[in-house]
């Protein structure tokens, strides 16, 4: 059955502006900082329409880090239940995927999938921002396929490819060095200034 214009508009909105909420279920802070890193100028995941939100009731995607501790287990469940459908979960970091090195500790329940269903797993200790961006893009692609009715690519076995990034990083470092040492260089990146809106 063909979708109405209204339904198409909603689909478009879901695809183009997924709002995310971040929850630390018991991480060491490494992945959390990398999640925030992903929204800062170098990685700028907001270009995919993403926005970090403060309340689960406004969010479409739950970004979870860390192995689930007994203290946060019920809270994680509650946050997931408060999110409106359709909802997606990205588990960021090895601990979130499987419990990592904390698996088997006396107050760790396991990975995120021990408590709530997970759509995308991002391994890494800590998961690099590039891997997080890759996970987001794969989730959005899968969502688009789902909306089109084409068979969705399995989203739960994504292994982010983070190779060949060193060259880019080196290039950026060189460029910044050049920028600082030549005072007359024009401000070519005005975008960094306008990023300071809502996180």
């Amino acid at each position: 059955m063909a979708k109405s214009l209204f339904e198409k508009a909603i689909d478009w909105g879901r695809r183009k502006s997924p709002w995310i909420i971040h929850f630390n279920a018991g991480a060491c802070n490494g992945c959390d900082i990398e999640v925030v890193d992903a929204i800062t100028p170098r990685f700028d995941v907001e270009r995919f329409g993403l926005m970090l939100k403060g309340t689960p009731r406004h969010a479409d995607v739950l970004v979870c880090t860390g192995a689930v501790t007994l203290q946060t287990r019920d809270r994680l469940k509650r946050i997931y239940e408060q999110m409106p459908d359709p909802k997606f979960v990205i588990a960021v970091g090895t601990c979130a995927c499987s419990g990592g090195i904390f698996d088997g500790c006396y107050c760790v329940a396991g990975g995120i999938d021990a408590v709530i269903p997970v759509n995308v797993y991002v391994p890494g200790c800590a998961a690099r921002p590039e891997a997080i961006i890759d996970a987001v893009v794969k989730l959005l692609t899968a969502l688009e396929n789902m909306q089109k009715g084409t068979p969705a690519a399995p989203v739960d076995d994504n292994v982010a490819d983070v190779s060949a990034l060193e060259e880019i990083e080196n290039a950026v470092t060189e460029a910044s060095a050049a920028a600082v040492h030549s005072d007359n260089q024009p401000a070519d990146s005005a975008t960094t200034g306008s990023q300071g809106g809502e996180e």
Binding site: G26, G66, A67, Q71, T72, R75, C105, Y106, C107
Partner: peptide, 9 residues
């Protein structure tokens, strides 16, 4: 909320 039992591990 972040107590993971590191020392015991």
């Amino acid at each position: 909320y972040n107590h993971r039992g590191l020392e015991k591990a």
